[in-house]
Amino acid sequence: MATAEIRITGFGGQGVVLCGYIIGKAASIFNEQHATLTQSFGPEARGSACSAQVVVSDSRVLYPYVTSPQVLVAMSNDGYQMHRKTMPDESIIVYEKELVKLEKHGPRVKTFGIPATRIAEELGRKIVLNIVMLGFFGAVADVLPREALRKAVESSVPSGTEELNLKAFDRGYEYGLELKEKAELRA
């Protein structure tokens, strides 16, 4: 893999940027790659659409912004609507099943949905929704090794919440593996 461009979108407060941060950290600290994280947000602190972009590469990232993302992780419908048209013909869309209303995409766009909010609630804290999404992304997009992502989760979340977050990550990851298996069986 030379370069992978990933965009994560949702609304402020969902942990969009942390999700991007963990992906970038997994690549650059735990997988010997280069990763540049940038973010876009409005002047509002919470509630408005925001997005994080990560460029992962085997060599230094020279142009810092995402131009043609291979993966879109959508945690809100607004974010999904804002960015879905920028997805190239061949790409992956990872979305929160109960928050995003999926539109029609071309035949080579793979879409994977997960009820991440509900899973997070089952785990006892809705706030780990982003980490469930991250685990799910890890399994279906297969851009980074599972272990690198896990280490990045563990070292990025507030101390005392590592166990919960790793559980959230694993639940998302397992959900993704199952879904992928089913999709492959169908194919």
Partner: peptide, 9 residues
């Protein structure tokens, strides 16, 4: 802003 808000190793 680009460098300030850009996260890297």
């Amino acid at each position: 802003e680009c460098v300030g808000h850009m996260t890297e190793k």
